Amino acid sequence: MPTSIITTDDLREFKMELLDKIKELLEKQSAGKIRKYLKSAEVMELLQVSPGTLQNLRINGTLPYTKVGGIIYYDSEEIHKVLTTNRARNDF
């Protein structure tokens, strides 16, 4: 298995790319380009969870949802609220 050497320049470039992506997401959010309601597939991708985990989050009431004609929608603000209230704090 070949190995790669990561230099400080590589890390600096990665940091700049990451900061650019975060800035882009924040600009989209402040401009209202992030949709208010998301479908299940979008939420699974966003949270990196399986369909079963998403279903469990619905069933146990962790993640509020709305069902319209067989399609389940999630409020993006509610998702953010759930993530914020369940944030683990590591106080050393």
Score class of each variant (00 low, 15 high):
26 L>N: 13
12 R>Y: 04
23 K>V: 10
92 F>S: 04
54 L>K: 02
75 D>T: 00
58 R>L: 05
10 D>C: 08
21 K>P: 06
71 I>G: 09
9 D>P: 10
3 T>W: 10
5 I>T: 10
47 L>T: 06
83 L>S: 04
88 A>T: 09
62 T>N: 05
77 E>G: 04
77 E>P: 00
16 M>Y: 08
27 E>N: 12
4 S>F: 11
57 L>K: 01
34 I>S: 13
49 V>F: 00
46 L>T: 06
73 Y>F: 15
37 Y>D: 00
27 E>L: 09
40 S>A: 15
41 A>P: 03
11 L>S: 11
18 L>V: 08
55 Q>W: 05
80 H>K: 14
54 L>D: 02
18 L>F: 08
90 N>C: 09
16 M>K: 12
18 L>W: 01
61 G>V: 06
54 L>G: 00
12 R>E: 09
30 S>V: 05
29 Q>S: 12
41 A>C: 05
68 V>Q: 08
52 G>K: 05
31 A>N: 14
46 L>R: 13
60 N>T: 03
67 K>G: 01
10 D>L: 01
26 L>F: 04
75 D>W: 09
26 L>K: 15
19 L>K: 05
30 S>H: 08
19 L>I: 02
50 S>C: 06
9 D>R: 14
45 E>Q: 01
47 L>W: 11
76 S>K: 03
12 R>L: 13
89 R>F: 15
72 I>S: 06
12 R>P: 03
67 K>N: 12
24 E>L: 09
81 K>Q: 13
61 G>Q: 01
17 E>C: 06
41 A>N: 07
79 I>N: 10
3 T>E: 15
75 D>R: 02
14 F>Q: 12
35 R>S: 09
49 V>G: 01
46 L>C: 07
86 N>R: 12
34 I>L: 15
15 K>I: 05
8 T>F: 00
66 T>A: 03
60 N>M: 07
47 L>I: 07
24 E>V: 08
88 A>F: 00
59 I>G: 04
83 L>W: 13
2 P>T: 05
3 T>I: 01
3 T>D: 14
38 L>E: 10
24 E>N: 10
14 F>E: 08
71 I>W: 08
61 G>M: 01
72 I>N: 00
78 E>S: 06
14 F>R: 02
90 N>M: 07
92 F>Y: 03
80 H>R: 14
26 L>I: 05
84 T>N: 14
79 I>V: 13
75 D>H: 12
25 L>C: 13
70 G>E: 12
80 H>M: 13
87 R>W: 08
69 G>S: 14
78 E>D: 15
14 F>L: 12
27 E>W: 05
65 Y>W: 04
13 E>V: 01
26 L>R: 15
37 Y>E: 02
12 R>V: 03
67 K>I: 11
35 R>Y: 05
84 T>Q: 15
29 Q>I: 07
20 D>V: 07
33 K>M: 12
7 T>S: 14
20 D>N: 11
70 G>Y: 10
5 I>P: 07
85 T>W: 02
92 F>I: 02
43 V>M: 06
73 Y>S: 09
46 L>D: 09
